[in-house]
Computed example of a mutant assay.
Amino acid sequence: MENGSERLLHLTGVFLGKEIFAQSIHNDSARRNGAFVAVNCAALAENLLESELFGYVDGAFTGAVKGGHPGLFELAQGGTIFLDEISEISPNLQAKLLRVLQEREVRRVGSNYVIPVNIRVICATNRDLLQEVQEKRFRNDLYYRLNVLQLFIPPLRQRGEDCILLMEHAIQQQCLQLGREPVQLTPGACRRLLAYPWPGNVRELVNASERICVLEKGPEIGEEKLDDILRDHPLAHPDSLSQPDSSCDVQPDSPPSLQPERQRIEIALRLSGNNREKAAQMLGIS
Results as ranks from 00 to 15, higher is better:
Arg211Tyr: 04
Ile171Trp: 06
Pro182His: 14
Cys190Trp: 01
Val106Lys: 02
Glu204Tyr: 01
Gln131Glu: 14
Cys190Glu: 08
Tyr113Gln: 13
Pro187Asn: 13
Gly200Trp: 08
Leu156Cys: 11
Arg108Lys: 06
Cys213Pro: 11
Tyr196Leu: 03
Leu178Thr: 12
Glu161Gly: 04
Leu151Phe: 14
Gln134Phe: 11
Leu185Pro: 09
Trp198Glu: 07
Gln158Glu: 15
Tyr144Cys: 00
Val148Ser: 12
Gln150Asp: 12
Arg108Gly: 00
Ile164Gln: 11
Val148Ala: 14
Arg127Asn: 09
Ala208Ile: 07
Met167Phe: 09
Glu210Leu: 06
Thr125His: 01
Ala124Trp: 01
Gly188Cys: 02
Leu156Trp: 12
Glu105His: 00
Arg107Val: 05
Leu129Ser: 09
Pro116Tyr: 10
Tyr113Ile: 06
Val148Glu: 12
Cys175Gly: 11
Glu103Thr: 01
Asn118Asp: 15
Pro187Thr: 14
Ile164Asn: 10
Gln174Tyr: 10
Phe152Gly: 13
Glu204Lys: 00
Leu129His: 09
Thr186Cys: 03
Val214Gly: 00
Ile171Gln: 07
Leu130Arg: 15
Pro154Thr: 07
Arg191Gln: 13
Gln134Arg: 15
Arg203Ala: 12
Glu204Leu: 03
Thr125Ala: 10
Val148Asn: 08
Ile212Thr: 05
Leu151Pro: 02
Gln172Lys: 13
Ala124Ser: 09
Arg108Gln: 03
Arg99Cys: 04
Leu98Asn: 07
Gly160Lys: 10
Gln134Ala: 15
Gln177Asp: 08
Leu130Trp: 14
Ile122Asn: 04
Arg104Leu: 02
Cys213Arg: 04
Leu193Asp: 05
His169Arg: 13
Cys123Val: 06
Gly200Thr: 10
Tyr113Trp: 03
Ala208Asn: 00
Gln177Val: 11
Gly179Pro: 14
Glu204Gly: 12
Asn112Ser: 13
Gln150Ser: 15
Glu161Asp: 05
